[in-house]
């Protein structure tokens, strides 16, 4: 069953084409990778899917009222708050599960340091914890693999597999070729 049907979606900025006539369906239990080179409009397509942006042409039907978990390439982390506080303001509890994740990702010793003092990679890992906590049936991520080290990438892959098993859906963008076999929507002409 498809919960999202897109027909010939196009998008323009200042009358310049960003997306040209894209058609696809997405159903539950799918891992969908939107691929294309930089500047090909991947993020724009994600924004159209979650309803932040309206396509200039074509139609998009959402058949599900499910809540969406969305994480853009901007992380929503606050530099001036500590790791612990950042987790709290995003509604995550400091429970054994998350403490375990922090430990696994080597962030536990930074728990009371402000996020501004962490490296880019560490910040990406912190965002990863948010993704791993997502309870929504539909998860949409913009470039989730960028900046992660091999170990964290594996954690993310495991999570993706579990999503598929639970009949949930994950849609994400990537400009690099991943060896894994995801269903791919290519948006390069």
């Amino acid at each position: 069953m498809h919960f999202l049907e897109a027909q010939n979606i196009s998008y323009k900025i200042n009358d310049r084409n960003i997306l040209r006539s894209i058609t696809f369906n997405i159903g539950f239990g799918e891992l969908v990778k939107i691929s294309g080179r930089n500047g090909s409009g991947k993020t724009t397509l994600l924004k159209i899917i979650i309803g932040l942006t309206e396509q200039t042409k074509g139609s998009l039907t959402r058949k599900s009222e499910e809540k969406i978990c969305f994480l853009g390439h901007k992380s929503g982390l606050k530099n001036y708050l500590t790791v612990r506080e950042n987790l709290l303001i995003h509604g995550l509890k400091i429970n054994s599960l998350n403490l375990g994740l922090l430990e696994k990702l080597n962030l536990k010793r930074h728990i009371d340091n402000s996020v501004g003092t962490l490296s880019f990679g560490q910040q990406k890992k912190l965002s990863l914890i948010r993704i791993l906590n997502a309870k929504e049936r539909i998860i949409i991520l913009d470039e989730p693999f960028v900046g992660l080290d091999e170990e964290s990438k594996n954690i993310l892959r495991e999570f993706m597999d579990s999503i598929k098993k639970e009949n949930r859906t994950l849609i994400f963008t990537s400009h690099i070729d991943l060896e894994d076999n995801y269903r791919e929507i290519k948006i390069d002409e």
Partner: peptide
């Protein structure tokens, strides 16, 4: 807006 928090609020 800069750090993406607004985006996440808007989605929900």
């Amino acid at each position: 807006f800069e750090d993406g928090t607004l985006e996440q609020y808007a989605v929900n």
